[in-house]
């Protein structure tokens, strides 16, 4: 499965408004379009994962991820905060790009871990942070995925 096929333009936000780590997580969750109760459960689960160690992998990129019963298929969202937010990233630098990955506990197609690895690999490409910062539309983001993370 191509990464491009797991995103929709609705799940991409190039100008996140949140100013803190918690609020960034909440804003990303909202991109999935779940109901309020599911949002609340998912937030707790993501927070608990963050408490194990930040998903900020450095170079301005974070990949919050978890499994949760509130989704019944693999869901992804991307958010960008041009000014950056303190996400306790590994390199202690502000994070600008956020890839949210949520998978159900029972996942027939077993895509979660390969997708997580693929996004981490994509994000670690040296020029990706700069390319992401220049994107102006959700469509451009999706095209980038198609070209760079086939």
């Amino acid at each position: 499965m191509k990464l491009r096929e797991l995103f929709t333009s609705d799940s991409v936000e190039l100008d996140l408004s949140a100013e803190s780590k918690d609020d960034i997580l909440k804003e990303l969750i909202q991109l999935l379009g779940l109901d309020d109760k599911s949002d609340a459960i998912l937030f707790k689960t993501l927070k608990r994962r963050e408490n194990l160690g930040s998903t900020g992998i450095g170079k301005g990129i974070a990949i919050p991820h978890c499994r949760s019963l509130v989704v019944n298929k693999l869901r992804l969202a991307y958010g960008r905060k041009p000014e950056g937010v303190d996400f306790q990233a590994i390199d202690e630098e502000p994070v600008h790009n956020f890839f949210l990955i949520v998978a159900p506990p029972l996942e027939v197609s077993n895509q979660y871990l390969p997708v997580l690895g693929k996004i981490a690999q994509f994000a670690k490409d040296p020029d990706i942070p700069e390319v992401l910062s220049g994107i102006e539309t959700a469509e451009e983001f999706l095209t980038l995925l198609e070209e760079r993370a086939p």
Binding site: L32, G33, L34, D35, K37, S38, L69, V70, V71, N72, K73, R75
Partner: peptide
């Protein structure tokens, strides 16, 4: 994707 739950109550 449809939300997993749609009840409006707690």
């Amino acid at each position: 994707m449809t939300p997993a739950s749609s009840s409006s109550r707690e």
